[in-house]
Simulated assay, not measured.
Amino acid sequence: MRRGDEFAAAIRRGNRAGRPTLVAHLQVREDVAEPPLVGFVVSRAVGGAVVRNRVKRRLRHLMRDRLHRLPRGSLLVVRANPPAASARSEHLAAELDVALDRLLRRRGPDHQARTDGRV
Score class of each variant (00 low, 15 high):
97 D>R: 09
58 R>E: 10
19 R>Y: 09
77 V>D: 01
72 R>G: 09
6 E>S: 10
91 H>K: 08
78 V>W: 06
96 L>D: 04
108 G>P: 06
82 P>N: 03
100 L>N: 03
62 L>S: 02
3 R>S: 13
58 R>L: 14
96 L>I: 08
55 V>W: 08
63 M>W: 05
93 A>T: 08
20 P>H: 05
25 H>V: 00
3 R>L: 14
55 V>P: 10
57 R>D: 07
53 N>V: 13
6 E>A: 11
20 P>T: 12
62 L>G: 02
106 R>V: 04
44 R>V: 13
113 A>L: 14
114 R>T: 10
32 V>C: 02
41 V>L: 12
73 G>I: 01
16 R>W: 03
44 R>P: 14
10 A>F: 15
88 R>H: 15
41 V>P: 13
86 S>V: 11
118 R>M: 11
109 P>C: 14
92 L>Y: 06
46 V>F: 01
88 R>E: 13
9 A>G: 12
80 A>L: 06
81 N>P: 15
19 R>F: 08
5 D>K: 12
59 L>S: 08
18 G>M: 02
72 R>V: 10
69 R>Y: 10
80 A>F: 12
68 H>L: 01
104 L>A: 09
105 R>W: 14
65 D>W: 15
34 E>Y: 06
38 V>T: 06
107 R>T: 09
75 L>S: 15
79 R>Q: 14
102 R>W: 12
114 R>C: 12
61 H>L: 08
76 L>C: 02
20 P>M: 13
89 S>L: 15
27 Q>K: 06
43 S>A: 11
31 D>M: 07
77 V>Y: 14
64 R>L: 05
6 E>L: 05
43 S>L: 12
4 G>T: 10
39 G>K: 00
81 N>D: 07
31 D>Y: 12
100 L>G: 00
117 G>F: 06
54 R>D: 13
65 D>T: 07
7 F>M: 01
107 R>Y: 10
34 E>F: 05
9 A>I: 03
88 R>L: 12
103 L>N: 03
43 S>T: 14
90 E>V: 08
57 R>F: 13
29 R>L: 07
36 P>Q: 09
26 L>Q: 00
88 R>Q: 04
95 E>V: 01
95 E>F: 03
34 E>T: 08
36 P>H: 01
48 G>M: 11
52 R>G: 01
98 V>R: 02
101 D>V: 05
17 A>E: 04
15 N>A: 12
48 G>W: 04
64 R>C: 08
42 V>E: 00
50 V>S: 02
15 N>R: 14
